[in-house]
């Protein structure tokens, strides 16, 4: 009894991009394919396409992240959209009323899209629920819930190395409980037909009913968990997990879950290792793996831009579709 997917418009097209949960394979593949097309824009002397000319995109960042904001901003600018950046300290405007006031003001300026980053799970859903009908909302990370563009970027990177997601065995190692990136990666991997998605961590960092709720195999032993895997994703360990009583020490974490060349031997010989960066060397993995040939720098800037351009243009493109047939080959001779 989950009701209609709040991300889709009446024609079943993506209007918002809040979570990958509930989307289908064609939708995700479409975004990856479009991103492929946008990659070529970076090779143009004029690194800009006129697709979203005249659109206004507002970056609403309630949680500071210069890196993520910059990629969204540049992606929007490459689509020829105008960009407003708003860094709103959560402490000053924690109350919903103020948040909605901010939205209404921006809507009055004819903003077409909000890119939202917030420390509360569900914040992007909340904004989407209260946004005017002509406005799209992109989730740029909400609490521990989802970070769908990051998840898609990771799929894009895996696809570049492995050709296809379908049939792959992928292991995600670390703090699944608090990771919005892991949730989006798991959703994407399952939707795109990965043969097996595994999560590896001590029980304190695996959320309740993870196997059933997320569709993963749960492991508590690193070597067994990465055996025969094609892709190993290492999550960043936040220092708060020690003070919060989830782990005794970084030392013991590395001893049990740190990735070393020796442990990597149980994965497939051509397995790639991914990490969102910046790496805590000697906590999540040692330098030999981090700098080794199998390590993939996850946040490839050009890939990140291409994915965000694809997501933004897909959502903005769903706006004036009332009754119109979707684009086809023959429509534009």
């Amino acid at each position: 009894m989950t009701g209609a997917n709040p991300q889709l418009n009446a024609q079943g097209q993506l209007r918002h991009f809040l979570t990958l949960d509930g989307l289908d394979r064609a939708q995700l593949t479409g975004i990856l394919d479009h991103a492929e097309g946008f990659l070529s824009v970076a090779r143009q002397p004029v690194k800009k396409v006129p697709l979203c000319r005249g659109k206004i995109i507002a970056n609403l960042f309630f949680e500071n992240s210069t890196r993520t904001r910059t990629t969204f901003e540049l992606a929007a600018k490459r689509l020829s959209a105008d960009v407003l950046n708003l860094n709103i300290s959560t402490s000053a405007t924690a109350k919903g009323e103020t948040l909605l006031d901010t939205l209404r003001n921006l809507e009055a300026m004819h903003v077409d899209m909000f890119v939202v980053r917030h420390s509360d799970s569900g914040a992007a859903h909340f904004i989407a629920r209260h946004a005017a009908p002509h406005v799209s909302v992109i989730n740029a990370g909400d609490g521990c819930h989802a970070h769908p563009t990051q998840g898609m970027l990771d799929m894009f990177t895996i696809r570049q190395h492995k050709g296809d997601i379908a049939g792959l065995k992928v292991a995600i190692v670390g703090d699944i409980l608090h990771s919005r990136v892991a949730r989006s990666q798991i959703n994407a991997l399952n939707i795109l037909g990965a043969a097996e998605v595994r999560v590896i961590a001590p029980r304190t960092l695996i959320p309740a009913a993870a196997g059933e709720a997320l569709g993963v195999q749960v492991f508590h032993d690193l070597r067994a968990g990465i055996a025969d895997c094609d892709v190993i994703i290492m999550l960043r360990l936040q220092h708060e997990r020690m003070t919060g009583g989830f782990l005794p020490s970084e030392h013991e974490y590395f001893f049990l879950f740190g990735l070393t060349e020796k442990r990597l031997a149980s994965a497939k010989p051509d397995a790639i290792v991914m990490h969102p960066g910046p790496i805590n060397r000697g906590v999540e993995m040692d330098s030999e793996v981090a700098d080794g040939p199998r390590s993939v720098i996850l946040e490839q800037v050009s890939n990140g831009l291409a994915i965000r351009m694809a997501v933004m243009s897909t959502c903005l493109g769903s706006h004036n579709l009332s009754g119109q047939a979707p684009a086809t080959e023959a429509a534009h001779d």
């Binding site: 949960d21 799970s121 569900g122 909400d142 609490g143 521990c144 819930h145 989802a146 608090h178 919005r180 949730r183 959320p207 309740a208 009913a209 993870a210 059933e212 709720a213 997320l214």
Partner: peptide, 15 residues
Amino acid sequence: HEGRLSTRLGLPGIP
């Protein structure tokens, strides 16, 4: 409730 939905939605659970 700490369970399927709290896990899917990344919400802190009450066990």
